[in-house]
Write a protein that binds this DNA or RNA. Structure first.
Lengths: 325, 325
DNA sequence: GTGAAAGCGCTAACAT
DNA sequence: ATGTTAGCGCTTTCAC
């Protein structure tokens, strides 16, 4: 049995109200009473029940995070940057890894709403989900379009795609393939592909897309990449829209005896801290993860406090110069 | 204003009790009533308030996860493996990144207890924290000793340290340095160092430890590693107790013109999925992350359901053969 | 089969 | 300066 307010009150010889007042430091209290109550709380090792408070206050100080998986350097770093900022602002964090499964995402959404979270930060890359529409919960999306009313934080995907493609071309690549997820996902990240196409066309080169789904297993991705090499034997450049895929392309090239960057130039995307530490030689587009987290939390807090600012925030990217291009 | 049970009851023309029964599928109900109520719930888009339920039931179906940071391939993968298993078992997940800050860990612990979590999985590597003692909350620790009553899941750290050291020696290294965190942390991972020492001594070699604290910044780690090379100019082997450090050692060696593995052999530890994808050439000790997550969840669920099994579970490790040794 | 009423632990009017 | 009481949204005895 856990200790509750009433137990403390009885031990201190006062009413529940008084204990509550001490707990919340509200109203008039004599020093003596405060001391008595504090002593009783210590003695019983009293911990207030947050659930009861939440019910009364209709505020939980809980924020839900829905992301594909934390087991990916980009999302891992993003969550690691979000969480302490939210904690500092007084929020605890629920996490849900949707693995890009719409059913799981829906389930999370329901659970989180049911748990009365005060807000949501969503970075999962899913198909349209009605549940987002029927709620006036404060939500912020990262790199994802949910609907017009939900603010989106993203990095400059068009610029990133442009920088990547131009760099490959500048270094002499002509047969450049972009690896990307399905277009059916509504994400600003598709601007990377648009930029790629635009730049290719501007240089009189033919754009080619090869599908690699983010949520495929490692084995399936690996087989797909091998197929890509078969399908495009004269390929001399790859723009992979995330670093893990870029690393797998590089690995496959090595297995096939293809020299990087001499025979094949590879550029990735994301450049999370841990990726840069493990594979600094990978040339890649660096997303400002920390700044994105900052913007997301800032915007969410604004929303929670009632400011109904609708906006899209686009943060700058830059090239991380490794040795793969 | 949110829709509550009472609103549904009114619209359906029944009592709260009946709606609650429909919601929980309990007791006798006529088909007709069920239909009426379900219709009303749909119409109002009713979502039950989990907080109110939690207060009544004294069960939250919430589990807290306390880890240093999800922005590290090992912990990221661990959390990614824990979360879906807990979700499947009906639990939602709170996450707290302690960054090995005891104050933050204490704060999390208090918050989570206050939030009435049903259980805790702790993998943060901290100094002793009293708060763990004064609770009879079901807890499972990963690679960490909290007290005798708390089950520990770990991989076979002694065997890992032995395999690593023996491999370095077998390939001809003689001046082998281990990089490790401070001994003051109570973690079974210290057995890696013990195994290293034992094996070195058995081969008549002198063990040498170089401190690299997990929670140092990248820059500080980098400077430390550079110092290590200065301090031990004849070093020909490094056993890094995590892969990120191993990668940094390798990177520094390259900058200094030292050939790996010819002049310097490096072996890491952890071998998370994403690390293996990014840097498959790193020879390292592979922890069975998925099996550890499975064991942790299984044990926690047992504890939550009241079985008071005290146990230490040690799972096997193996060598990932890259090209750095 | 269905409803009225009490209570989970806490807070805040409204007394006194 | 402190206590009494009602109520947050839900579930569950106990009646009918």
């Amino acid at each position: 049995m856990t200790i509750k307010l009433d137990d403390v009150a009885k031990l201190a010889g006062v009413s529940k109200t008084t204990v509550s007042r001490v707990l919340n430091n509200r109203g008039y209290l004599s020093e003596e009473t405060k001391k008595k109550v504090n002593k009783a709380m210590k003695e019983l090792n009293y911990q207030p029940n947050a659930v009861a408070r939440q019910l009364f206050r209709k505020k939980t100080n809980l924020v839900g995070l829905i992301f594909p998986t934390v087991d990916n350097p980009f999302f891992g770093e993003l969550v690691a940057e979000l969480e302490p900022r939210l904690f500092k602002a007084g929020f605890k964090v629920f996490i849900g890894n949707s693995m890009n499964d719409p059913e799981k995402e829906k389930a999370y959404l329901r659970e989180l709403i049911s748990n009365q979270v005060d807000g949501l930060i969503v970075g999962a890359h899913n198909y349209n989900i009605d549940e987002y529409m029927n709620t006036n919960l404060p939500i912020v999306a990262i790199d994802r379009i949910i609907n017009k009313d939900i603010p989106v934080i993203s990095s400059d995907n068009y610029q990133g795609g442009k920088l990547a493609t131009e760099l490959l071309i500048k270094r002499g690549a002509k047969f450049i393939v972009i690896t990307d997820g399905p277009l059916s996902l509504q994400t600003p990240a598709h601007k990377r592909r648009q930029a790629y196409k635009d730049v290719m066309k501007a240089h009189g080169l033919e754009p080619r897309t090869f599908l690699i789904n983010f949520s495929w297993s490692i084995e399936k991705k690996k087989r797909s990449i091998e197929k890509m090499f078969q399908k495009f034997p004269t390929m001399d450049g790859v723009f992979a829209t995330n670093d893990i895929d870029a690393a797998m392309v590089w690995q496959t090239a090595e297995e096939l005896g293809i020299e990087v960057p001499a025979d094949l130039k590879i550029i990735g995307y994301d450049s999370a801290h841990s990726t840069r530490l493990l594979l600094p030689k990978l040339t890649t587009i660096e997303q400002p993860i920390s700044a994105m987290a900052e913007a997301a939390v800032h915007t969410l807090l604004q929303r929670i406090s009632g400011e109904n600012i609708i906006c899209e925030q686009v943060l700058p990217v830059r090239v991380w110069h490794g040795r793969s291009v």
